[in-house]
Design a protein around this nucleic acid. Sequence first.
DNA 1: TTTGTTTTACGAATTAAATCGTATTTTGCT
DNA 2: AGCAAAATACGATTTAATTCGTAAAACAAA
Lengths: 127, 127
Amino acid sequence: MGTSKYIKPTESELEILRILWERNKASVRDVHEELSKTKEAGYTTTLKLMQIMFEKGMVGRDDSVKIHVYHPVVSREKTQKHLLGKMITNLFGGSPTELVIHALGNHKASPEELEEIQQLLNNLKKQ
Amino acid sequence: MGTSKYIKPTESELEILRILWERNKASVRDVHEELSKTKEAGYTTTLKLMQIMFEKGMVGRDDSVKIHVYHPVVSREKTQKHLLGKMITNLFGGSPTELVIHALGNHKASPEELEEIQQLLNNLKKQ
DNA sequence: TTTGTTTTACGAATTAAATCGTATTTTGCT
DNA sequence: AGCAAAATACGATTTAATTCGTAAAACAAA
């Protein structure tokens, strides 16, 4: 069996995880303020969501301190891999290449990033 | 306003759309049999899902014939673009490059595919 | 046409996500 | 200590997704 139980974050949970992955730790207020930039929602809604994520084991928290500080438990990498796989299957006919092409085509990358991808490509070609 | 109303397929709907995109048209039975390969679900469940998708305008259908034949209405490209964008934002810290790297790293691509990506990369570099 | 099979229609139940109001607790300040 | 502000807990509601049973309709074959 896998080491961590299998967890499929919902859309809202993913938005919260995004912030936690970025900051490593954050209070409900932190998260809520960040979320509010792009989304309308009450404070207690965010709170409740994070509490549920805690119950699910998706995030951890330190409540020894006054204000609870949350941190991600589910790994960004695993989540990325899982969702990417699903996306490739359902949206890109099973072809990772198609996904890559769309990603590169639709979103502009800087010269540095292009170079980074070139490096990776070179490595893959060698094998 | 956008030409098509904005539509966010659910997980299950995406699985059905995948099949319709692949085949262009299919009956409920066709879809159901394909789904059954990877998933446990009753026939009427698939039927109901497709009926709901029809009501949402996500798929169309020809019911002039005995057995209803469904076809996709929402565009694969638009859906790809939309979900890809969300994924980049929430899972890859806003960096399409990171997504590309993960996609290439985790799923092996054939030499032909690598070449295809190389072509694209060359084009992007020129600009 | 009768009978059995396949398909569609419909309604209902179940499950889960998301939102929020209100109450309680904790904290910070004077 | 006493009060106001901020944070948490909790419960309830709303909304939507999913599932499936059952009935009606369409069809195929004898």
